[in-house]
């Protein structure tokens, strides 16, 4: 893996990942567009700037771990893993089809690079805690990253896990909240208010970093800062836009759980500079 601080190169990778997401979703005919696009910059920075891993040895003991707690952003994970070299990009065309290792939500048994099966919300942070505890017991200095949706943190288990991480001083853990403000039934603040996020996580004993989740420089700096925090876990609250990168998907709640039509795809690809 090549480590780069070339922000432009990272931004371009994120653009290519967005294109890959839109293409695979259109072929699949269903899936979660909005929340895959909103977290694309964050996950790009993780895989192509921050994390240590080896796609030829997916279970390398000293790898950094990524847990996609918001499992419905599976297309984002698949596009990223493929680009990182875990599997051939041709597989992306099989998303959600019978027999495909690319399940509607990530299945760790069917695809290399997926640490744990997710999809039912609220469970990833607990798993991340367990991994962080295990790594610490073994004296391995790898880091664990866990991406949560903002709607997802309405789940009680997230707050149980937030307590556990702080209680056990898991400074090898970094949670990232994709705070795009929308969930299936509407704006998060209308469905079930989760604010104020910094105060809540702070009260639970976490180090808070708040950023624009589409500003690559801020993302990279936040991940670096998180690594310097000792004695407690860090959370990056990333303010994002659902459907980011495609003007007619941005901020539109109806694109939470549907795929682009072929017409929408060709318009979107133009916006993203393909062709």
């Amino acid at each position: 893996m090549e480590i780069t601080v070339d922000i432009k190169a990272l931004e371009d990778k994120a653009r290519l990942i967005r294109i890959s997401i839109l293409k695979m979703l259109t072929l699949a005919g269903s899936g979660h567009t909005g929340g895959s696009l909103s977290a694309a910059d964050i996950v790009t920075a993780l895989y192509f700037y921050k994390m240590r891993y080896n796609p030829k040895e997916p279970l390398w003991k000293e790898r950094d771990r990524f847990i996609l707690s918001k499992g419905h952003a599976a297309p984002l994970l698949y596009a990223t893993l493929s680009m990182a070299g875990y599997f051939d990009a041709q597989l992306l065309k099989t998303l959600r089809k019978i027999g495909s290792p690319l399940q509607g939500h990530p299945n760790s048994k069917s695809l290399p690079g997926i640490e744990i099966s997710t999809g039912s919300l609220g469970q990833g942070l607990s798993v991340a805690n367990g991994i962080a505890l295990g790594l610490r017991l073994d004296g391995i200095n790898s880091r664990v990253y866990c991406l949560l949706g903002d709607g997802e943190i309405q789940e009680e288990q997230v707050w149980e896990a937030a307590m556990t991480a702080a209680h056990y001083h898991l400074d090898n853990l970094c949670a990232i909240i994709d705070n795009n403000g929308l969930q299936i039934d509407g704006p998060v603040k209308e469905v079930m208010r989760i604010d104020p996020l910094p105060q809540k996580w702070g009260a639970f004993g976490w180090h808070i970093i708040e950023i624009d989740g589409h500003n690559m420089e801020e993302i990279v700096n936040a991940m670096d800062e998180a690594e310097t925090i000792k004695g407690k876990p860090a959370v990056i609250i990333a303010h994002t836009t659902k459907g980011k990168g495609v003007s007619f998907f941005e901020g539109r709640v109806e694109y939470h759980g549907i795929a682009p039509t072929p017409e929408e795809l060709s318009k979107a690809l133009k916006e993203l500079g393909e062709i």
Partner: peptide
Amino acid sequence: ERFFNIGISEQDMMGTAAGLSLTGKLP
């Protein structure tokens, strides 16, 4: 050092156990 009281939160306990197993521990 190998015992983790997770408090009154069974759901989190199961997830934490799962994570520990992923690092080769036997929870």
